[in-house]
Structure formats: C-alpha cells, structure tokens
Design a protein around this nucleic acid. Structure first.
Length: 198
DNA sequence: AGTGCGATTGACT
DNA sequence: GTCAATCGCACTA
C-alpha cells in the first residue's frame, strides 16, 4: 500500500506537537525513476524564540524558508558537506521548525545504498545528514510545500508509531534545557547514544 | 576582507 | 573514546 499524502490541516501548527506527531509518519522523495522513502523515527523541535534555532537572529536569505507556513521544507547546508531538513511548524512570519533526525528506510533501498556508499541498512538514514543524502534532498528542495502535489512530501502508510520517548536535543553547544527531541523507543534506526534511544 | 564556527560524519587511537 | 574535514554565512572592521 502506497502512503497517503498528509494535508496541511492534519499537521499541528505547533512546533512541539508537530515534532511528536511526525514520529511514525513517512518522508517521501519522488525521483525521476524511483521513489525513496523512510519512516520518521526521530525528530527535534526548534521552538519560537529558541536560542539554538536558526531563526533566532531573524530572517536571512538562507533561513527564510523557516518563516513560511507550517508544512514546508527548510533545507540548510552545514559543516561544508551536509544538508539537513526541517519541517516548518508555525504561522507565516514565525520562524520555527522540526528537524528530521532519522528514518527507517522503506522504499528505494538500492538507491539509498548507492547514494550513501554503503549497503548497511542501519547506516542508510540514521542521522540528519545521512537521511538527506540517502533521499537526495539538498538546498534545491528548500522551501518546497510538503503538502502540495510535489516531489517531496509527508505521508501516512498506516503503521503508527510505537511508544514515543523524549530527551534533550543532540549536538547542541548551547545550554541544554528542555526535552525537545522525540523518538520511537527501541527503534534501531534512531541516532544518538544508547541511553537516549530507549 | 578576514575570521570563526556549525542542529555532523567517518576514520582512527 | 578523539578528531579533522569542509564551506557558506553571519559577524566584525
């Protein structure tokens, strides 16, 4: 069964609620010949006014997509080599988003393996830089409407999330404060240290 | 115009 | 566990 496209009305227009909601949903990228997709198993919320959020210092050319209506893609490039993808999460003009941190590969495994340079299933999309590489998502997809009939979209294929865990966010150099990371408990495709995966 | 660094990854001790 | 790679961009001047 192919996944059903989610419409904007179904997505919570609230960053933390959306981060929780997206666990168990599917991220789909339709390429020319094939479809690549993965089940979202880990997210992080970057809330309104978040000092760790990319919107904190206001709108710029590179982060402007973050200020779009909820349900858009914000794709940014970092460390000179990695793209990372957010789903925007608030009203137009408000800068906030949900970082997609890990996928359980579903469709297009061979394509993912080729893009990633490994056939190890666990390494295909476990991590925010890895999953964009596996699905072929880069800055050219920045700003796309994930709720329109486009090549990059969110779906539901009827396999709901198991128990959802919550923890502090990973990789922040700023102060660790609130538990804004969500993940499917026990899922081997979740990134991070073991103590943050159960 | 120069500088420092990042929501990471992969290789290596 | 540690650490370098790599470059766009925000910030300082």
């Amino acid at each position: 069964m192919p996944p059903r496209r989610l419409c904007r009305d179904e997505l919570p227009a609230d960053t933390v609620a959306l981060a929780r909601y997206l666990i168990g949903k599917v991220l789909v990228h339709d390429l020319k010949q094939v479809r690549v997709s993965g089940r979202i198993v880990e997210t992080e919320a970057y809330i309104i006014g978040d000092p760790s959020g990319h919107a904190f210092r206001g709108k710029t050319r590179s982060n402007r997509s973050l200020f779009l209506e909820h349900g858009r893609a914000y794709v940014y490039f970092t460390y000179g080599q990695f793209n990372m993808m957010n789903v925007t999460s608030e009203s137009p003009g408000v800068g906030a988003g949900v970082l997609v941190r890990a996928l359980e590969p579903i469709e297009g495994l061979a394509v993912m393996a080729r893009r990633r340079g490994t056939s190890r299933l666990l390494d295909l999309a476990r991590g925010p830089g890895r999953l964009t590489s596996a699905l072929g998502i880069d800055r050219r997809r920045d700003g796309l409407d994930l709720c329109a009939r486009g090549p990059l979209w969110l779906g539901d294929f009827g396999r709901p999330a198991g128990a959802v865990g919550r923890s502090v966010r990973i990789g922040l150099t700023r102060e660790q404060d609130r538990p804004l990371r969500f993940f499917e408990k026990g899922n081997p495709f979740v990134s991070g240290p073991k103590r943050l995966r159960t």
